[in-house]
Amino acid sequence: MEHCDQSQTSDRETLNKTDVLRDFQVSFFAMSRLVSFPWTFLEKELESNKSSDLILDILKQTCLHSLCRKFPPSVRFRRLFLSELIRREAAGCDPLDELYDALAEVVGAEDTTECYKSYILPGGDAVSLLENVALISEGTTGLVTWEAALYLAEWALDHQQVFTGRTVLELGSGVGLTGVTICRSCSPNRFVFSDCHSSVLHKLRSNVQLNGLTEPTVSVEEMDWTAATEERIKRIGPDVVIAADVVYDPDVVGSLVKLLSKILSCSSAEVFICSTIRNQETYGGFKQQLETAGISHHVMTGAVSHVFPYNRASSIELIQLYT
């Protein structure tokens, strides 16, 4: 019985370490806020065991991982992350050469306005995107990944049958997180990314190519919501239309609702809109305009699998539209 108890304890410790290493990896490549990392587990482990093995394992899953060589997070982020590791190591165990070698690589390196973020999928593959460091740049918010896009991607992973074998049109694709995740995991027959800002489209095309997605299965199109015609929508022939974080500016809500009305009137597409509700007045105005246009909506309830790291305290709502 004693041997059995020891074995179960060992299994729990192994599971915990595996989970913690994955948490470090997922958070590191998505450039999550450093306070969200599982530092407490590391500190407790170093208190009970003065070995630097766990720190080396963390390094192997982050800065020394092949994904970091290919698609590195920002220099500043890596520098701060390594400094946090060194602070814990200095208090708990012998110096680790690999840790200081990794820091030496980034200490003199120059920061850039762009960096890679990688979002680890459940199977272990990663969606890697080139994003801007600043939240707003070149007059647009479309050069970074926002929370509603992450939520919608998680919902898609839980509801792959909605997209499998179908033609999907995404409005306001941004840097491409949701669409690339769907293309990589849900086997759509065709996927059309769209946006209207030239800088966003340039980065979107790069990210689509970066993730190995090619025409004719996948395409990136410029789409001005005020100019999109029913003929163009029919030519695309969407079975599913999705959009994430497109309801944030009252000035564009009217053109979005008009486009959604055209889509619903000239196709039989299922339409899903995912929004982070930052301003209740703006979001309420969007729903009011939908109602005025004769468009009803249904709030999609139920939890989604936690795949990507982001602030889950945010108010995010996914709705399906219909007439």
Rank of each mutant, 00 (worst) to 15 (best):
R184L: 15
S185L: 13
V257Y: 01
V240M: 07
V241C: 09
H202E: 13
Q209L: 14
S265I: 00
Y248G: 03
L210T: 15
V257F: 02
S206M: 11
V180F: 12
Q288K: 14
S255I: 02
L260M: 04
E281Q: 12
V200D: 04
D239V: 12
R278W: 04
A243Q: 03
L213S: 09
H197A: 01
Y283M: 05
E291M: 02
I236K: 08
D239Y: 11
I277F: 04
S219H: 05
K258Q: 10
E230Q: 10
V208P: 08
F286S: 09
V247H: 05
K203E: 06
P216C: 09
S265E: 11
T181I: 14
K287E: 13
S268Y: 09
Y283V: 00
S261F: 12
K262G: 06
P188S: 02
E221Q: 08
Y283A: 00
V253A: 07
V192P: 00
E221S: 02
T181N: 09
S198W: 02
V253R: 02
V208Y: 01
K258D: 05
L260N: 02
D251M: 07
L210S: 13
C186V: 00
R232N: 11
L259M: 10
K203G: 03
S199W: 00
S185E: 15
A243I: 12
Q288M: 13
Q289W: 09
L210E: 13
V218T: 01
T276V: 14
L204I: 10
P250Q: 05
V271Q: 06
R232W: 01
P188V: 05
N279R: 05
V218A: 08
V240D: 14
A243V: 09
V192Y: 00
C186W: 02
G212D: 04
Q209G: 08
V192R: 03
T181V: 15
L210Q: 15
R205K: 13
I263L: 11
L204C: 06
N211K: 10
C274T: 09
I263D: 05
D245N: 01
D245M: 02
H202G: 00
S265P: 06
E291P: 02
T181M: 11
T292K: 15
S185G: 00
P188R: 07
N207I: 06
N189F: 14
I277S: 10
S261T: 13
E215H: 06
V271S: 01
D251V: 07
V192T: 03
I242W: 08
E215V: 07
S194E: 00
S206A: 14
N279F: 08
R190P: 05
L264V: 13
R190D: 07
R190Q: 07
E230T: 02
A269D: 09
K234W: 03
T282C: 12
I233V: 15
D249K: 06
L264I: 08
S261A: 14
G237E: 12
T217L: 10
L213D: 04
I273S: 10
S265T: 02
D239S: 15
D195E: 06
S219P: 02
V252N: 03
A269F: 10
A269S: 10
N189H: 14
M223F: 07
E230W: 00
S261W: 03
